[in-house]
Design a protein around this nucleic acid. Structure first.
Lengths: 267, 267
DNA sequence: GGATTTCTTCCACATTGTGGAAGTCGTCGT
DNA sequence: ACGACGACTTCCACAATGTGGAAGAAATCC
């Protein structure tokens, strides 16, 4: 088989992690074998064997009813130990709170993770009733969704190209295409913030703004998602103003955080 | 090589996870290659290759200064997505808070994870000044430390035997032995709670109590750690009384939680 | 500055992982 | 209820991948 890029000694680990990422991209109640195999570009029996091994080790769990794979408790446990010194969620908590209560809609923090956007945290406003909302920890390809688009648009163009190429297959599965994402990136750059149409998630739109140079080197974006009829042009402007305000507040908080990093559980 | 138990198709994954567990057992600033290889019972070059692959994938990070391996940010990200429906940390938060403030020492929640005890959360009291405290997410072999001992002692004897055998090598690295742990288990069962001498972590003692049938099927223990001169016999009794109180409160909270599970970020 | 320990690279070998094909199971639709 | 389709699992011949001893760099200690 082709081995692709200069790996030194671990096809298996690369494949396994690739499967884990695909599982954590799946919303709802677990991802099925065939879908995972396809997404990770692996033959079904191979994916099956790897998934079984990951399950045996506790990195995955299998929903008895659905037969779908979910991230396992061992990953939660590792996550506790891997908590970063600068806790982005804690830093963004109050910003999210204000955004959600002032707009009445759902406010999100997304971070870049490789070629994915990762939902770090969210806060629901009073109006928020979404069918299958993005949950904390979920991943999507950079460019798909408002937060993910804002994150993609701030990357240097050559990196954008690399991400687009790498995600080409995945865009298709989201009903997108490389070209459409590229156009959206250009529009986002010109506009200064990201908006999505109601097409990606049916009947919902998002507005997003990337945070300066990110948090601790990690690019981060704030976004607000609402039913599309609630987000007309004037309202978008108001939401963007709120996002701008929170973005500044966050940058200020970051500066002071460098001198007094708090760690551990919230009081 | 001997393959040991009935694995179906993934030596590599088993070894990789084993290394991850060892990394998350290491306190301080990262675990070194040789130590990890020894702990995971792997030849050094093999461990090196696997660790390099895990690092490349983002499951591990390497401290440039120490050359030690730490859990990587991708594990933190997976951890977010893998957060359990019943959040043990949230349930125990107030119990920890009271224990820490009333004793002035360090209060911990530990859970069982395979043959390990896992530090789920901790709260420092006013007196707590530990040199190398156990951090959230750290692992130790079941039986080493007060919380870990309480967790081991509530297991059925045959399971205790299995754990003891499996951990034999690791006890040695903690200056313990299977026999000493077994004796401690008997003593813990007779006493109804676990205490440790100041020998495991120099100059510190712990008192621990397991929580009923655990939380959501996961065995859990509450513990208080203090400098050994602070923990004389009468004070131990008082701490145990506090632990008993919190243990009951926790069991009560568990019952009501079953009917109104809260999820997501705290308000 | 040399000795010791720790880490990294190398490479011949075979164990482990591979994936096509075939079998089994679960789930639809009628 | 039953049959037909798709999804999951098992099987196994094959070789690519992972393996680990040995030797070569780095870093660290004395």
């Amino acid at each position: 088989m082709k081995s692709g890029l200069g790996a030194g000694g671990a096809q298996t680990i690369q494949r396994a992690v690739s499967l884990l990422r695909e599982v954590s991209a799946s919303r709802g109640r677990g991802a099925r074998l065939t879908a995972l195999a396809e997404a990770a570009e692996l033959p079904v029996p191979t994916a099956h064997r790897l998934l079984a091994a990951l399950t045996r080790e506790g990195l995955l769990e299998r929903d008895a009813a659905t037969r779908g794979y979910r991230l396992g408790s061992l990953l939660y446990e590792f996550g506790l130990a891997a908590s970063p010194d600068v806790d982005i969620r804690r830093l963004c908590a109050s910003a999210l709170q204000r955004l959600a209560s002032e707009t009445g809609d759902c406010a999100y923090v997304n971070a870049r993770s490789g070629r994915d956007a990762l939902c770090l945290d969210r806060r629901e406003g009073s109006f928020a009733v979404q069918a299958a909302p993005v949950r904390i920890g979920n991943r999507r390809p950079l460019g798909v969704g408002s937060g993910a688009l804002a994150l993609l648009a701030i990357l240097p163009s050559e990196e954008v190209d690399a991400v687009l190429e790498s995600n080409a297959r995945r865009y298709r599965r989201h009903g997108m295409s490389v070209d459409r994402v590229r156009v959206a990136v250009e529009a986002t750059r010109a506009r200064g913030f990201a908006v999505t149409t109601g097409r990606i998630v049916a009947r919902f739109r998002g507005v997003a703004l990337a945070v300066g140079n990110g948090v601790n080197g990690v690019p981060v974006a704030l976004s607000v998602i609402a039913a599309d009829e609630r987000l007309d042009a004037p309202r978008i402007d108001r939401v963007v103003a709120l996002l701008r305000r929170e973005e500044s507040a966050l940058r200020a908080a970051l500066t002071s955080e460098l001198f007094s990093p708090a760690k551990g559980t919230l009081p």
